[in-house]
Design a protein around this nucleic acid. Structure first.
Lengths: 188, 188
DNA sequence: ATAGATACAGAACAATGTGTTTAATATATT
DNA sequence: AATATATTAAACACATTGTTCTGTATCTAT
């Protein structure tokens, strides 16, 4: 990829991330992004069709990485100091979040957290299906499997949200305990 | 309240609700609302400072009613064909939703569902604190009470969301069973 | 190193939306 | 009927949007 493209793309992402930690997504104009990134108007629109597409691309970079890591797949070009492989996937994720790689924490705890928690959830659901549902690790119960998957996924996301709203006072280990306690009768 | 005010306020709410079931909140302009409600520009701004305030007022009307009902308080001027008082609060809520009073279902299952589910959650949390936490009905466990309240609240909202995404194929009774099964070890 | 391709900047644009002001009209309330 | 108040229509300055144009800077390949 052209050096210039990489630079502007990065400038746009940085500006966008900065703005997102400052104000509401809806209140961020393309003009704001252009001014903050200090690029030409035309340039923005050659890179991104709309603000929504920019958001989508940002989320894919953010959560693609964190989920890919948790999947145990190669990490690409990112550095990762995560825990050993035998930890719970959930503990793994929390530790990864705590590292605040790519400022994901700032976004997850900003006033725009809902947007990012939604993306987090949809990616996490895929992970849970792969790591739990497809391996038969969900307790057979009277509950439909997709209800169960949704419940377990949502509960983790809500746990993360709760943790963030408490300024992450608790350790990832404690949070994992809370979460597993809340769903322990549903997962083997 | 002046008859004229009531009429325009209602016209604005109706227009807004219609638009919300059609397109994204962010893509609805004040101009759209004005055109749909067929009112003067000035009139809108005398009633609502911004689109956000309109949304807030709408949500308060919607969820104020449904939660008030579930609280067992007088229903005000609304008609309600809800089940008997000894039903679970949750069954009560689901039945109330099923009646689709004030088109709340349309909004909860529209592309703007997140907005309304958020309001639903914040109101439901108050209800759960009043009906469960304050009455000592939550199982004493290793979990902090606010974590537990949040988990139970979120799980119900997620259950409703799941139900809606399934076009409410299941009965309120079945959904209540699912939900209670998912949290049964946490509530007495 | 040069040539051709590509990305960027800057300016201008029509179109749309915003929030406010003005003065006139219509409708309630008493 | 008289007064108060809600609504209207028009105009406004301003911001944002998405596109088009031309010229310039920077890359890539040979």
């Amino acid at each position: 990829m052209d050096r210039r493209q990489k630079k502007t793309r990065e400038a746009i992402f940085t500006a966008f991330t900065t703005l997102l930690s400052e104000k509401n997504y809806n209140q961020i104009s393309v003009q704001d992004i252009i001014d903050t990134a200090d690029i030409g108007r035309t340039t923005f629109y050659t890179h991104f069709e709309t603000k929504d597409f920019l958001l989508k691309d940002l989320c894919e970079e953010l959560f693609g990485h964190i989920i890919e890591t948790a999947m145990g797949l190669p990490h690409g070009h990112y550095h990762c100091t995560c825990a050993s492989a035998d930890d719970s996937v959930f503990l793994h994720l929390l530790r990864h979040l705590q590292e605040n790689d790519r400022n994901i924490l700032e976004l997850l705890s900003s006033q725009n957290n809902e947007i990012f928690l939604r993306y987090f959830k949809s990616n996490l659901k895929r992970l849970i299906i792969t790591q739990y549902a497809d391996k038969g690790l969900l307790k057979s119960s009277s509950l439909p499997e997709d209800y169960l998957v949704n419940h377990i996924t949502s509960s983790f996301v809500e746990t993360v949200d709760w943790w963030l709203s408490h300024n992450m006072k608790e350790s990832p280990e404690t949070i994992t305990e809370y979460y597993l306690e809340a769903i322990k009768y549903l997962v083997n």
